[in-house]
């Protein structure tokens, strides 16, 4: 006896929603102020790191190299000053060695930029590998259930008893000196299970939905259902967790490098810089400060971007219900 216009209205509503989904997400994201600031900060760091000292064959605008040693000026103190003169500071000044020099006279700005580049690359590769593997595994397990699921669940059970840092440290010990790309791929290959579980949960709930039933009733193949029908509906979850995985990877890489089982010299990364100079903490604290500040800025801005994306894709949390 229900008013069936209701259904018609709902159906109309659905198509409208579907058409503007992307716009809606974009609009919600751009309303998230912290996420926008995060975007700006992270974008700024990337541009700074890659344009200053250049990357690969590309030259940068900074005239010093992260490899060249030199005379240590003023005990290697940073020449950067941000406090204007009328506030009693030394004025806004960039100077010869804005971030100072290390004990053998390497320009610390160049070194920090190099570390930032490497840390960002590692984090993105780890995030990409973990997300891809996690999504595929979670998707198959969530859709096929039974065997595949059992295997995946047992596998994640096993991985969950091993703290991420432990397994990553062991992998890092093996592949630390094979270059950052190999290292990052290997870390990605051991950190996907949490993500896999998440995606599986999402698939489990979606595979019960009517549109999947309908597709199955029409005889659509499983792979088509997974990739055409379900996967697009989990994009939100995947993008958000990928973002957060990258933020975590920044921290994980720096922790591994700090412990000496991550990026190995002559490669540099932010964590490895802190490890190298930790004994200089009392005499040259800036050697410790700068990489730390960059790690925090990167992780914080990516975390905020992730939060903005989550709000944009899943606004449930921010809306009040009757």
């Amino acid at each position: 006896m229900a008013i069936s216009a209701q259904a018609a209205g709902a159906a109309q509503g659905m198509t409208v929603v579907a058409r503007t989904q992307t716009q809606l997400v974009r609009r919600r994201f751009f309303r998230h102020r912290a996420a926008l600031i995060g975007m700006l900060v992270f974008g700024g760091i990337v541009v700074l790191a890659f344009s200053s000292i250049g990357f690969g064959p590309l030259p940068g605008w900074w005239d010093k190299s992260y490899l060249a040693t030199g005379a240590v000026v003023d005990q290697g103190r940073p020449t950067l000053s941000l406090v204007p003169q009328f506030l009693g500071g030394e004025g806004l000044r960039w100077g010869e060695h804005p971030f100072g020099q290390d004990n053998i006279g390497i320009d610390y700005f160049a070194l920090t930029m190099r570390g930032t580049q490497q840390s960002i690359i590692v984090a993105f590769i780890v995030g990409f590998v973990a997300t891809t593997v996690g999504t595929l595994a979670g998707a198959f397990a969530g859709y096929f259930r039974k065997k595949v699921e059992a295997i995946l669940m047992r596998l994640t059970d096993v991985m969950i008893t091993i703290p991420v840092l432990i397994i990553a440290a062991i992998v890092g010990r093996s592949f630390g000196d094979s270059g950052i790309v190999v290292l990052a791929i290997c870390i990605g290959l051991v950190t996907w299970p949490t993500l896999g579980r998440l995606i599986r949960g999402e698939f489990l709930s979606l595979r019960e939905k009517e549109f999947v039933e309908a597709a199955r009733a029409l005889g659509t193949s499983s792979s088509r259902i997974i990739f055409r029908h379900i996967l697009p509906n989990t994009v939100g979850v995947i993008i958000v967790s990928a973002t957060l995985a990258i933020a975590n990877a920044v921290l994980l890489e720096s922790a591994l490098s700090f412990l000496g089982v991550g990026v190995q010299p002559p490669d540099v990364s932010l964590g490895q810089l802190i490890d190298t100079y930790r004994s200089a903490m009392t005499t040259r604290p800036w050697l410790f400060w700068w990489p730390g500040v960059f790690i925090i800025a990167i992780a914080l801005s990516i975390n905020f971007i992730g939060d903005g994306l989550r709000d944009a894709f899943d606004p449930r949390q921010t809306r009040v219900r009757a």
């Binding site: 912290a34 933020a247 921290l251 720096s254 922790a255 700090f258 412990l259 964590g271 802190i274 930790r278 903490m281 009392t282 604290p285 410790f288 730390g292 790690i295 925090i296 992780a299 914080l300 975390n303 905020f304 939060d307």
Partner: peptide, 21 residues
Amino acid sequence: TFTAFVCFSLPLFWVAVMLKQ
């Protein structure tokens, strides 16, 4: 919420060294 985000983004070893110092 903001503090929690900052805590999420702090490298543990860095905080530890800072606390110690």
